[in-house]
Design a binder for these strands. Structure first.
Length: 427
RNA sequence: GGUGGGAUGUCUGAGUGGUUGAAAGAGCUGGUCUCGAAAACCAGUAGUCGCCCUAGGUGACUCGUGGGUUCAAAUCCCACUCCCACCGCCA
């Protein structure tokens, strides 16, 4: 949600910038119009209310006929307030609805573009491995090494679910520990958040309105988290933090649930795109003037984590049209996936500026006493499922085994995963 | 699921219809004192929205949330949410 004052002051600029995101610039006109109406009615009702308040306080001091007359008079004013109130409420509802639909404008240095096809590659790290054999993809590796069972997950849950098995399970927990160790070392507070969230939180995090199709809702009107970003964003809602407490950095692990409603038929093979996966997420609360620097910092941590695993990647600069409503700027990391012979998104890091902070009412008190909205940022530390794919495929050997990245050795206690079948394949 | 208690400012905590936007204490900020610090003392210390050509003034709203009663609600009524205690069930 934007500051209406900023929209009032620079309507044309806001129109231009949200148009870059593909949003309708009419929203700005609607917001201004409704705001105008809102203030008009507000002034009217406040004036009457003010008069009523004054009369009411007089009544306490009056006696006899004077008091009776004053009450009669105040009563008329009170009726008028009751008449005006629904009008204000109605306009406020309209106003809020429009404001929630206006996306966060992209930062000035975000490149133009309509879709992910217009994103640009900032830099690359590592070299895709050259195999002297035909590399397999993670599905086939997972099958022969008895690490992934998608078939049976289909029986019990449906499509886009999977069982992880054996060494891969241990590898998952190793990745989680590895991510936490890196982040804790850098001052992040580890968090294990709830994954069932109320509407206010989802709305505040910027996933509603707009993302309803992507989110699972329960019969109790709670929502399954699609990322730990959501609970971590809501963690400080309605709070005023002290300037000296900032920055606050959290590392949250959670299972993530996504309906993948708009992606029928896309990435149906393997565990790349599933309804449920696990992820360690970074989340920062920072001073507004620090958020750009923090954004680079979070990306640098992501790179450090992937580099530590020895997986080749590229950093992608997300164009305006591909940003999504909350982000003002976003970088993705795409890791090399030999099975597909291309880079695939494994990380995403966004500077959300004050967009979530306004919706969630998260502010900070400056040393001089002023209260302002802070900035929030989020970034993937490790999306486990996808990183498992990258590791399996990049570290596969000619004999069909998978070598474990060195940084994970101390967590798993073995150095490679070798062929063995403990459970029969369904086929 | 049942019974009981509760929700007040940064925090603790008073307040049961009319200068209560809110006592008191703590904390924090500034000052006096001090070589410096502590202590003591003094002063200051809510947010949101609107209006006023605006380092200030002013109006409205805000005592969990929403509604109601009333000229007037932190205070009375209703619903809901959350928290605490105990019982039941349970990983």
């Amino acid at each position: 949600m934007l500051d209406i004052k900023i929209i009032r002051d620079n309507p044309e600029e806001i129109k231009r910038s949200i148009t870059r995101k593909g949003a309708d610039s009419n929203l700005v006109d609607q917001a201004l119009e409704t705001d105008e109406k809102r203030r008009q009615v507000l002034a009217e009702i406040e004036q009457v209310q003010s008069e009523l308040n004054r009369r009411s306080s007089d009544i306490a001091r009056l006696h006899g006929q004077q008091k009776i007359d004053a009450i009669k008079e105040a009563s008329l004013l009170s009726d008028k307030v009751k008449e005006l109130k629904p009008k204000v409420d109605e306009i406020n509802v309209d106003f809020r609805k429009i404001m929630l639909d206006i996306p966060n404008p992209p930062a000035d240095d975000v490149i133009d573009g309509k879709s992910d096809k217009d994103n640009t590659v900032n830099r690359k790290w590592g070299t895709p491995p050259q195999f002297d054999f035909q590399p397999k993809d993670h599905v086939s590796l997972g099958e022969t090494l008895n690490l992934i069972d998608i078939e049976r997950a289909g029986k019990i849950s449906g499509s886009r679910f999977y069982f992880l098995k054996n060494e891969l399970v241990l590898l998952e927990f190793a990745l989680i520990r590895y991510a936490f160790d890196v982040l804790v070392e850098n001052g992040f507070q580890p968090m294990l958040p709830p994954v069932l969230l109320n509407r206010r939180t989802m709305e505040g995090a910027g996933y509603i309105p707009g993302g309803e199709d992507e989110i699972y809702r329960t019969q109790d009107d709670t929502y399954l988290a699609g990322t730990a970003e959501q609970p971590l964003a809501g963690y400080h809602m309605d709070e005023i933090l002290e300037e000296k407490e900032l920055p606050l950095r959290y590392a949250g692990f959670s299972s993530c649930f996504r309906r993948e409603a708009g992606s029928h038929g896309k990435d149906v093979r393997g565990i790349l795109r599933a309804h449920q996966f696990d992820k360690v997420e970074m989340f920062s609360y920072v001073l507004p003037e620090e958020s750009e620097k923090e954004h680079d910092y979070l990306v640098s941590l992501e790179e450090k984590i992937v580099q530590g695993l020895g997986v080749p990647y590229q950093v992608v600069n997300i164009c305006a049209g591909d940003l999504g409503a909350p982000a003002s700027k976003k970088f993705d990391i795409e890791s090399w996936m030999p099975g597909e012979d291309r880079y695939r998104e494994t990380h995403s890091c966004s500077n959300v500026t004050d967009f979530q902070a306004r919706r969630l009412n998260i502010r900070y008190r400056k040393d001089d006493g002023k209260v302002l909205y802070l900035h929030t940022l989020n970034g993937t530390a490790i999306a486990i499922g996808r990183m498992l794919i990258a590791i399996m495929e990049n570290y596969q050997q000619a004999d069909g085994s998978i070598v474990v990245p060195e940084v994970l050795h101390k967590y798993v206690g073995f150095k490679s995963i070798n062929t063995k079948a403990k459970t029969q394949s369904l086929k």
